[in-house]
Design a protein around this nucleic acid. Structure first.
Lengths: 239, 239
DNA sequence: CTCCTTAATAGTCATGTTGACTATAAAGGT
DNA sequence: ACCTTTATAGTCAACATGACTATTAAGGAG
């Protein structure tokens, strides 16, 4: 840290990129924006932008998320944002040297984003259709998907995908959607209910379902953050 | 990523910092260097340095590690280096805006580093004595310790702390040292040996031990990278 | 208003993994 | 020879899991 004069070579730009996921119609969706400028003008990309001189990368990530989704400041302030990793290949941006800190966020299914900010438009895209993104965003997105799949195993993060009150069926669908597997309903239920602090029951009548079948009881996220022991996905289909 | 002119504000410097661990005499040690320049001249710090214009952060981390430890290029090329996270608080360096990508590495017990490179000196320090470091390195070090503790649970990473051939007792001591707990020896043995690909037996006579007791069989790291199911540490003493 | 379908919830049972132990084997030291 | 030390083998109960079956409570079709 001592022998290099930072003024002796062209400086770096630092950006944040966001992999924001939601579960919609039983499929995993990711928030994408259409680029309005070169390079990659017209291509789809992860939302993100430059870190400003007096903010941290985490602050920049929240700011960009609010700008590009139109979510209220409080909503964005509350939600779970997690640093994924940093991408620093010298050629990842054709214009200049850009190092990007990637973040992941999990949202409940929300109204369509109003493509605010600078993005030409922003929209939820099924993960399967999110390919050929700008820069190295395909790679970032794949890393983010791997990460949240692993995190579901040993954290309570799945509740972040759900509205404040949710049924165990909805929670199970989060796992099934992210992992791409089917889980046994009674076993899933047993595991969730016997893990202290994962969920807590909501008093009162079940939610108006609209659908067929016995109405499900409502739960909200508990106070625990880690799962002990973890909820492992079937088969060693790990990394 | 569109509305900000990168030339419109002072640029960022990008550095790497390394939390390099080893197990020595039953205690976890971390590699520290003494700073030869202001700021924090004379203080201890994690090894690291500026990322050069044409290298990635990962390449910079390997280069710095080789420079400051005197390890051979091949050794450094082979070893497991893992990106921890990026630290970007605007005030983390009093001189200028510096964003640092932190990496973690695990080494077997090695000869004392020859404080090469720019570091006034480099040396292994017991983790308990590694406090009041320069910049935000106390925080980075704490994060790194948390991370490797968690990684030991569900990966085969512990073998990185061991020489090419090792006994199960040595492997167990890695777990006990990093987690700060005592493990039951027969149970640990059963878990390691029944996990496919964690370790494989080495043919031939046991190593000259020098010590008392029955000589232990030798093993080397297997081909697996993940542990299924994980080797959970006792008590929910997680995060 | 009954029967059928659907989904939630309750429970069973065999298997697998873990934690806490006890027992034996093979080395060095006195 | 004995004692100490460490490695290795094996036992057993508690717990968690995977694969099931059964019951309950809703909506919809005749």
């Amino acid at each position: 840290m001592q022998d290099y004069d930072p003024g002796a070579f062209p400086p770096f730009a630092v950006t944040v990129d966001l992999a924001v996921f939601t579960v919609r119609e039983g499929r995993l969706h990711v928030l994408l924006v259409e680029r309005g400028e070169d390079p990659f003008k017209g291509a789809w990309a992860l939302p993100g932008g430059f870190v400003r001189p007096r903010e941290s990368a985490g602050q920049a990530a929240r700011r960009e998320l609010a700008e590009e989704t139109g979510l209220s400041g409080e909503t964005v302030a509350d939600l779970h944002l997690e640093q994924l990793r940093t991408y620093s290949d010298p050629d990842r941006d054709p214009r200049m040297r850009v190092v990007s800190v990637a973040y992941t966020a999990l949202l409940p299914d929300l109204p369509e984003p109003r493509g605010g900010g600078d993005a030409a438009q922003a929209q939820w895209t099924p993960l399967t259709a999110a390919v050929l993104l700008a820069f190295d965003h395909d790679r970032i997105l794949a890393d983010a998907h791997d990460r949240i799949g692993a995190k579901l195993e040993y954290t309570c993060l799945a509740t972040s995908f759900c509205p404040p009150e949710f049924t165990l069926g909805e929670l199970q669908q989060v796992y099934e959607t992210v992992w791409g597997v089917d889980l046994d309903r009674p076993n899933f239920r047993r595991k969730v209910l016997t893990t202290p602090g994962f969920v807590e029951a909501v008093e009162g009548p079940p939610r108006r379902t609209g659908g067929r079948g016995k109405p499900a009881a409502l739960y909200r996220a508990g106070t625990a953050s880690a799962l002990h022991p973890p909820l492992l996905r079937p088969e060693g289909r790990h990394a």
